[in-house]
C-alpha cells in the first residue's frame, strides 16, 4: 500500500470534475452548433467559464427544504445518487498501467454498484413530498430497472468471449479484434440500454419538463440539485469508459498505430462515445412512456437473450469461432 492508494483517487476525482465542467459546456456548444446557434459565449473567452459560473451560482443559492419533506431522507438522497456514480470509476482500466482497483469481478462490481443510484432517485422523489417528484421518481425507477436487464444481459456475450469479469482481461482479449464486431447485437443493445440508464435523450422521461416539471428533483435547489446533475454527468464518464473497455478495445490501438500512447487511444474512443451521446440528444425527440417500456422488454431483452445463444453457437463455427 502506498501514497498512490489515497492520492490516485483524489486526482481522478479532480479529473472527473474537470471533465464534467468541460462536458457540460461542450454539450451546450454541440447542441448550439447543430441547431444553428453559437451556444454559450458570454462568460469567459469562448464561453469557457460558463459551467464554472453556473456552479458558483448554485453554490450561492439558498437551500430550501420543503416544510412537508422528510428532512433526513431529503438530505441524504443526493449523496446516495452520487456515491455509486463515482465509486464505479475505481474498476475501469484506463491503460494497462493506470488501473485503480484491479478486482476480479470488476464488471459485476460496476453493474451492481451503479444500480444503487436508482435508490437515491427514489428516496429523493419520495422524501420531497411532492406529486411531481413522486411520479417522476417512480417513472425514473421503472425506466432504470427495466433497462438494467438488457444492459446486464447484453454484456454476457463479452464475458463469454473474454472468459473473465476482470475489465483488464476483457481489454486484453480484444488485442486482435474489438468486441464491437463479433458482439454487434450486444453492442447495440448495450448502447441503447446505457442511454436509458443515463436518463439521456431519447430516454430522458424522468426529466420530462413539459409534463412533470423536472421529475424527481423538482424540490431540490442549489447544491443538492447540483449533486443530482453531477451524478448524471459522472455516469456519462463511467458509461463512456465502460463502453470503450467492453466493445472498443480499451487502450488497444487501431491499425497497429502504437506510436500513440495507450492513454491517447483510450481518450479518443472515450471522447467519441461522449460526442455520440450529445449528438443523439440533438437528433432524437423524447419517446413516450409506453414506447419506452415496450422497447425495453419486447425488443432489447429478447435481442440480448438471442445474442447470448448466437455467441455460443458462433463459437462452434470453425475459422471465426475464436473471436466469439
Amino acid at each position: 500500500m502506498s501514497a498512490m492508494t489515497f492520492l490516485g483517487p483524489v486526482v481522478l476525482l479532480l479529473l472527473v470534475l474537470g471533465f464534467v465542467t468541460i462536458a457540460i459546456l461542450f454539450e451546450r456548444k454541440v447542441l448550439g452548433w447543430m441547431q444553428g446557434r453559437v451556444g454559450p459565449v458570454q462568460v469567459g473567452p469562448w464561453g469557457l467559464l460558463q459551467t464554472v459560473a453556473d456552479v458558483l451560482k448554485l453554490l450561492l443559492k439558498e437551500d430550501i427544504i420543503p416544510g412537508k419533506a422528510d428532512r433526513i431522507l431529503f438530505k441524504i438522497a443526493p449523496v446516495i445518487a452520487f456515491v455509486p456514480a463515482f465509486a464505479v470509476l475505481a474498476v475501469i482500466p484506463y491503460t494497462d498501467r493506470i488501473v485503480f482497483a484491479d478486482i476480479g469481478v470488476g464488471l459485476l462490481y460496476f453493474i451492481a454498484i451503479s444500480s444503487i443510484t436508482t435508490i437515491g432517485i427514489l428516496v429523493g422523489g419520495w422524501s420531497s413530498n411532492n406529486k411531481y417528484a413522486l411520479l417522476g421518481a417512480m417513472r425514473s425507477a421503472a425506466q432504470m430497472i427495466s433497462y438494467e436487464i438488457p444492459l446486464v444481459m447484453s454484456v454476457v456475450g463479452v464475458i463469454m468471449a473474454a472468459g473473465s469479469l476482470n475489465l483488464t482481461e476483457i481489454v486484453k482479449a480484444q488485442e486482435s479484434l474489438w468486441f464491437i464486431l463479433p458482439q454487434l447485437i450486444g453492442f447495440v443493445v448495450f448502447f441503447v440500454a446505457s442511454l436509458a440508464e443515463l436518463n439521456r435523450t431519447p430516454f430522458d422521461l424522468p426529466e420530462a419538463e413539459s409534463e412533470l416539471v423536472a421529475g424527481y428533483h423538482v424540490e431540490y435547489t442549489g447544491f443538492r440539485f447540483a449533486f443530482f446533475m453531477l451524478a448524471e454527468y459522472v455516469y456519462v464518464f463511467a458509461m463512456a469508459g465502460l463502453t470503450t473497455v467492453l466493445y472498443l478495445g480499451g487502450w488497444n490501438p487501431l491499425f497497429g498505430w502504437t506510436f500513440l500512447p495507450p492513454i491517447v487511444w483510450f481518450a479518443a474512443k472515450f471522447l467519441l462515445i461522449v460526442f455520440i451521446l450529445f449528438w443523439i440528444r440533438a437528433t432524437l425527440p423524447r419517446i413516450r412512456l409506453d414506447q419506452l417500456m415496450q422497447l425495453g422488454w419486447k425488443v432489447l431483452l429478447p435481442l440480448a437473450l438471442v445474442n447470448i445463444f448466437l455467441s455460443a453457437l458462433f463459437k462452434e463455427v470453425s475459422g471465426i469461432g475464436n473471436f466469439f
Binding site: 490516485g8 483517487p9 476525482l13 452520487f82 456515491v83 463515482f86 474498476v91 482497483a101
Partner: peptide, 16 residues
C-alpha cells in the same frame, strides 16, 4: 484493490 474501492466510496461521500 478493495482498500482502493473503499477510498473511492469514502471520497464519494466526502465530496457532497
Amino acid at each position: 484493490s478493495y482498500v482502493i474501492v473503499t477510498v473511492f466510496i469514502l471520497l464519494g461521500v466526502a465530496l457532497p
